[in-house]
Amino acid sequence: MKQGASWAIVTAWNPGGVPQPSARNIAAARELARAWAGPAGPVVNGEGEWAEDALLLPAARLRDAVALGRRFGQAAALFGVGSRAALVWLDRDVGVTRAWAVRDDPYTGVP
């Protein structure tokens, strides 16, 4: 991804934080892919029991992440520009938790 370019990660799995049957999550993920007109790549959002298939949306705008996340009943979406990332909470009033992405040293596991 080009340095300084915007991006978002959105999932359609488990709307409202309520676990759904696999078939329903897969169908929702396909609908999300159809809803996004631009390029997208598969990623995994979360970990462990909450690892969910999601889409990385290069060049997405913040409003795209908010609209898609809300459309698919998500509590939050991830939006970034370059290595800056924000967890965007999607309740009535959009809230943002900002963070910096860092690369782990593959030999020590330390950023």
Rank of each mutant, 00 (worst) to 15 (best):
K2G: 07
K2D: 14
G4V: 15
A5F: 03
S6A: 08
W7R: 03
A8I: 09
A8T: 04
V10A: 04
V10L: 03
A12N: 00
W13T: 14
N14P: 01
N14E: 05
G16V: 08
G17T: 02
P19W: 06
P21V: 07
S22G: 02
A23S: 04
A23Q: 08
R24L: 10
R24C: 12
N25Y: 06
I26G: 05
A27C: 09
A27L: 12
A27T: 01
A28C: 01
A28P: 02
A28D: 11
A28T: 05
A29L: 07
A29T: 11
A29P: 01
R30V: 05
L32C: 06
L32E: 11
A35K: 06
A35C: 07
A37L: 12
G38V: 06
P39C: 13
A40Y: 10
A40W: 12
A40P: 00
V44N: 10
N45D: 14
G46T: 03
A51E: 15
A51C: 07
E52T: 04
A54P: 00
A54I: 02
L57E: 01
P58Y: 13
A59E: 11
L62W: 03
R63M: 15
D64V: 04
A67L: 07
L68M: 03
R70P: 01
R70L: 09
F72P: 00
F72A: 07
Q74M: 11
Q74G: 07
Q74I: 06
A75M: 04
A77L: 02
G80N: 02
V81I: 10
V81D: 03
R84A: 14
L90Y: 00
D91G: 07
R92T: 11
R92C: 09
D93S: 09
G95R: 10
G95P: 00
V96I: 15
V96W: 13
T97A: 13
R98W: 11
A99I: 03
A99D: 09
A99Q: 14
W100R: 10
A101F: 04
A101C: 06
V102W: 06
V102Y: 05
D104S: 14
D104K: 07
D105P: 00
D105V: 09
P106N: 03
T108C: 06
T108S: 15
G109Y: 11
V110M: 13
P111L: 08
P111H: 12
